[in-house]
Amino acid sequence: MMNTVLAKLALTVGGSDKGRKTIAWVLAAVLSPLILITAVLCSLASGGAEHNNTTVKACFYGPNYTEKVPSEFRSHVSKMREAFSLLDSAIAAANSSEDSTGSLDPTMVKAVFFALCFGEDAPTRRAAGKFVDCFYSEQELTREVERVDENGETVTETETYIAITPLSLSDAYINLSTELGREISDEDKDNIRHIYTMIAGPMGVENYTGAYEVGGQKSVEIDLSTFSDPSTKNAHDLAAYAINAWQSGWGYVWGTYGQIMTEELFASKLQQYPEGVGSYADFIQANWVGGRTADCVGLIKGYGWLDAETLELRYGTNGMPDVGANQMYYNATVSGTIDTMPDTPGLAVWHDGHIGVYIGSGEVIEAMGTKYGVVKTQLEGRGWTHWLQVPYISYD
């Protein structure tokens, strides 16, 4: 069957340079997942690297096939996307604990799974859960809680609960080696690093030389006074939320979405991202600890997860999934190039690896990077390539 498919493919596209490149790509994809993953990450001079980058994106963002791609390869991508769905469910369950310190990074977990498991059958729900278990530790703790007893009196009781803490990637690799019964090699780790960067983008802007405007004094208050309808998730209030974050001097820490950067959360993120956060540890300690922080897409997700009654940020609620900037763009059903953008506050603006919130009058609020925090910039000249209506938010 495999030979028949490849023979048909050769007859269809083998008569041109482009066709021969397509055959090489499909051979790598169908015959050896390891070759595919390696090829994805190599900076080849031919079109093969672009084809294979597209393969990674097809698994994360959804496929866009041509008729020349054989069904066996489509099946590999379909199984990977099925696995991603199971992993997302397990990650959401782990992250839903209100007593957890930090949260798992879905893109990282899926990048690891892709690099180690592409080409295999989709896991069972239980197997997906055990894979995700490798990325965090559990601790049984106790706390004092009050309740009203049968006599109507308030009593204090000791309650036991489980808190999770995300592990560093190096610790997760140790767990995965045991779970999978194989060593996580240096080549695996390089593949994972490249796939993660391809999907998640850079960890903020390093050195920006353009104009930007910093916000006000640090404040942890979330002000809803300018919201039009706190009971819904809508474009106007997304813009108002972003403006409040800017006016309140929010900082930037990778992997956060508007939480107060406590010492405990900082320690958790430092362990989880020893490079992306650890490289700026002194700066974060001096400037952002004690205030609220977000990364670029976390600024938008935080609004989606805001409970307007309690003013708590409740992970994964209100239909807003935990996605990166690129996946938020690819999930959008209404979008366009930046030159076609309507003047609608609450639209998002995007370029590969970064996203911001348009607030009207040619201005954007963005969580720019660790050294900048949440800032205001001009839409024009900032390098945005596309605009989008944020999925899960109303633009009526």
Rank of each mutant, 00 (worst) to 15 (best):
N191P: 10
D88K: 00
T197K: 13
D190V: 04
T232S: 03
H76Y: 15
V214S: 12
L41E: 09
Y136M: 10
T385S: 15
I192Y: 11
D121L: 12
A325R: 03
T333Q: 08
L180R: 11
N151V: 00
G369Q: 03
V364I: 15
G15V: 05
D17M: 06
R143T: 12
T154K: 05
L31H: 04
A115V: 10
G278L: 04
V148Y: 09
G298F: 04
L388C: 07
F283Y: 15
A239V: 06
T101C: 13
F73H: 15
N95M: 00
L265Q: 11
G356N: 06
F266N: 13
I35D: 13
S85K: 02
L169T: 14
N175F: 06
T340C: 02
Y273T: 01
S43C: 05
V26C: 08
S168V: 06
S43Y: 04
K371D: 03
W254E: 05
V155N: 13
G353N: 05
S168F: 10
G249D: 01
N151E: 06
A332Q: 03
S103L: 12
S85F: 02
A286Y: 09
V349P: 02
K110F: 06
Y372V: 09
W350Q: 01
R147D: 09
E82M: 06
L31E: 02
S16G: 07
P345S: 01
S97N: 12
D171S: 14
S78N: 10
D229V: 01
K110D: 08
A325L: 04
T262F: 01
A348G: 04
I91Q: 01
G346F: 04
F84E: 07
G346V: 06
Y65P: 08
G201I: 11
T226N: 14
S43D: 10
K218V: 14
I359T: 09
P63V: 02
G298I: 03
D88S: 00
E309T: 11
T12E: 11
T107Y: 01
T154A: 06
G298M: 08
D282C: 03
A242P: 08
V253S: 07
R125S: 13
L224W: 11
S78C: 10
L87R: 00
A24I: 07
P391S: 10
T337Q: 02
T377S: 04
D352F: 03
D171A: 15
G381S: 03
G14E: 05
L306F: 14
S335E: 07
G356M: 03
S168K: 02
G62N: 05
G316P: 02
A83P: 15
K233C: 01
T101G: 09
N175Q: 13
C117H: 14
S225R: 05
V112R: 12
P33I: 07
G152M: 04
T54E: 11
E213Y: 15
